[in-house]
Design a protein around this nucleic acid. Structure first.
Lengths: 208, 208
DNA sequence: GAGGCTAGTGACAGCCTCTGACAATTGACA
DNA sequence: TGTCAATTGTCAGAGGCTGTCACTAGCCTC
């Protein structure tokens, strides 16, 4: 972020993300064209595509920031924690520090609203899920290193991450459907669902 | 499949899927245009889009058939099995009966090769993952009914399905990466990975 | 601080996916 | 056989995305 060039570039990028999120949350993802976004920032459409590989990437830029922080957070967890504990703590901690990450680009409120946008747009949801698998792969590497196991021969890191991500995905979805867009609710659901995984897999559901 | 019209339609659809899979597995997904597929079957591009909502749908048509069978299979499992047992049995059983489902449209070998195509094409993988979430939702309904719990208030069906799907997804991916496209290997990996989930979540990975 | 160098941009042109509208064709059925 | 409905082809066009090329503005050296 030293030179004027770099600062200018960052400003353009932020402006594009801001405009994109603004338009997506107000008009919807499909009803917003790349031209709209470019026009809102007063750059050419071609320039938009120099910053983002596609419309999706602009929509998921905020997610990327949060996810990157989450992965880093897991890596920094004390090594006495089990993989699941480490991921759990990192997520919960994440919900508390979201402001710091997002607020520099858009209001947190708008970030939360993007969850609905993502969930309600098939193409966007698809892109989000694919990116999540990339995150999972990165996470698996982190866990393997933490626990000192070989990712090529030991499937456990990937299995643990897959299970964890599955639960988080359900949480995300249920939270969105509930329509209560508060961080507090999200926090509670995260903890609650993660607690229930064990019993769900082992205990009998039928109570009679 | 009574009238001539219906038979003709089915034949066109099968021909499109066949041509699509043929082209995708030989040239790759991105290097195959909808025009190519339509031309191979000698119908107009517009007709293609009357059969499939998009290029992806044609590519995932075979998957759909297999998945539909899987969900039905879970529904038919004896009620004394736990949810996880039922899903596990349904999958393993599925690998044994795949021929019957697929062979009527394309050789099984080609179906297996589509896994690589899906895995190596970002857009296609994204579409696949999104569709998987829809399957998960359907599965959750099946489990909820089986166990007699309320899906609106009880997260356990969705959690169980999410965990199971997560494991299956890892299996799928590792199988594809291994490059050994035999049903036998897939079968073994499925069973092996599902067995390891429990220990992975509870036991200590560090053996010293 | 002048001039060369290069990253970043705008302006086209063009490909591909996908959709709406309307006309032409073909099967269904009285 | 004639009418009706379903299926298809043709045409037109929007929108996402990419290559190309010229141009401007920041940067760096002398």
């Amino acid at each position: 972020m030293e030179t004027l060039r770099e600062r200018k570039k960052q400003r353009t990028r932020d402006a594009l993300v801001r405009a994109a999120v603004e338009l997506f949350t107000s008009q919807g993802y499909d009803r917003t064209t790349v031209d709209d976004i470019a026009a809102a920032v007063d750059v050419s459409q071609r320039t938009f595509f120099r910053y983002f590989a596609g419309k999706e990437e602009a929509a998921l830029a905020l997610q990327d920031m949060v996810v990157a922080r989450f992965v880093a957070s897991v890596r920094e967890r004390p090594s006495h924690e089990t993989p699941l504990e480490a991921m759990r703590q990192a997520v919960v901690e994440g919900w508390d520090t979201i402001n710091e990450i997002i607020e520099s680009v858009v209001p947190v409120e708008q970030y939360l609203r993007m969850y609905s946008v993502i969930e309600s747009s098939p193409v966007l949801l698809a892109a989000h899920l694919r990116r999540s698998t990339e995150t999972e792969e990165r996470l698996a590497h982190v866990l393997a290193e933490r626990e000192g196991v070989d990712l090529d021969t030991d499937p456990r890191p990937r299995l643990a991450v897959a299970v964890f991500s599955g639960v988080m995905r359900v949480t995300e979805r249920q939270w969105t459907m509930a329509g209560d867009f508060s961080l507090e609710t999200m926090r509670e659901m995260t903890i609650s669902y993660l607690e229930q995984v064990g019993p769900t897999l082992t205990e009998n559901w039928r109570t009679h």
